[in-house]
Write a protein that binds this DNA or RNA. Sequence first.
DNA 1: AACCGTGATGTTATAACATATCAATACGTG
DNA 2: CACGTATTGATATGTTATAACATCACGGTT
Lengths: 159, 159
Amino acid sequence: MKTIGFDSHNHDACISDALGMATDICAQQKLQFTPVRRRVLEILLHEHRAMGAYDILEVLSSEGLGSQPPVVYRALDFLVKHGLAHRIEGLNAYTACAHLDHEHVPAFLICRTCKAVAETDTGIAQGRLGQAAASAGFTIEKVVVEAEGLCPNCTGAAA
Amino acid sequence: MKTIGFDSHNHDACISDALGMATDICAQQKLQFTPVRRRVLEILLHEHRAMGAYDILEVLSSEGLGSQPPVVYRALDFLVKHGLAHRIEGLNAYTACAHLDHEHVPAFLICRTCKAVAETDTGIAQGRLGQAAASAGFTIEKVVVEAEGLCPNCTGAAA
DNA sequence: AACCGTGATGTTATAACATATCAATACGTG
DNA sequence: CACGTATTGATATGTTATAACATCACGGTT
Ligand SMILES: [Zn+2]
Ligand SMILES: [Zn+2]
Ligand SMILES: [Zn+2]
Ligand SMILES: [Zn+2]
C-alpha cells in the first residue's frame, strides 16, 4: 500500500502510465474507452486534485468535446463505475484513481486549502467498523473514508 | 462504544433525553438554543434517519418556522458545528447525533433502502489511515467514515 | 433614554451539483 | 445489410447550498 499524491514525481510519466493502464483495463473488459471518457480521465490525472463536474465540463467545453452536464456526468459515471476514478463525497468532486494496478478500498487525504488529494488504502471493513456492522446485523456494501486537513505543502503556509 | 440506530427502543424517551442533553450542552457553552434550532434537532431526532435540508425545511415551513433555505441551513450549521447533529456526506443529508454524552469521531452505517442511520464510533485516526497520513506529512483535522449497505430490517426484504 | 455591538432571522436571488427524457448516431455481430 | 445495444446530443428540470443585504432582539454603555 502506498499513499500517492503529495510527493513530487515525474508527472508526465505518471499520467501516461495511468492512461496506458486504463486503456488496457478497458480493452480487457471490452469497455469502450471513448474520446470523452479518455479526455476526462486525462483532465483528472493532469491535476492531482479533486475537480467538480462543472470544472471538468468547462475544460471539455473549451475543447469542443461537449458542453452540457450530462456529457461529463456520463463520463464520470463510467470512470467511477469501472474504478478508473473515484468520487470524493466530502467535496462533491472527482479524482483519478491512483491505484489502477490493484483492487482496493480507497481512502483519501484531502487538503482543505489546495484540494490536493492523496489516495491510500485501508482495511477499514475489517476493523472496528466491520465489528460494529456485524454486531448490528448490518451488511456493508461500500465504505467511504475521507480525511480532511492540511497537506505537507500547505501545513506551513496555513492561514 | 455503542452502535445506535437499528434497534427498537423507547423513542419518546430517546428524543426527550437527547433534547435535554442538547439543552444542557447549549447552556454550558452559552449557546442560544433557539426555537428553530431546537425544532430542527427535534425533527432529526424524531426520525432515526438521514434527512435532506429541504425535507426538514418542508416541515419547518408547514409550522410557520421559516420557508427559505437559509433558515434550515443556518440551523443545521449550528447543530453540526456544536456536535448536536452530523452531516452524512454520502447522502448530502443530516442526522441527529446519537452520542451526545461524549466526545467522539462518528462513523455511520447507512441503509441504502430505508435511509436509517446508525452512528457508531471509530478510532480510525489511530489506525492505518493515521499511519498513512503521518507518513505523508498530512495533518488530519476531520475524518468521514460512512458505510453504505443494508440494515438488518432491509436485509431480508431486499429487492 | 439614546447608542452601539453582536448574534439571530427574514428575504431574494443565484450558485453549484445532478438527473430525466427523448431523439439521433455509431458499433459490433450475424 | 439488418438488428440490438451502447453512446452521444440536446433540452429541460430537479436538488443542494450559499451570497448578499436588510432587519430584529438583546445586553451593555453613555
Ligand atoms: Zn501524477
Ligand atoms: Zn494543500
Ligand atoms: Zn431514538
Ligand atoms: Zn434499511
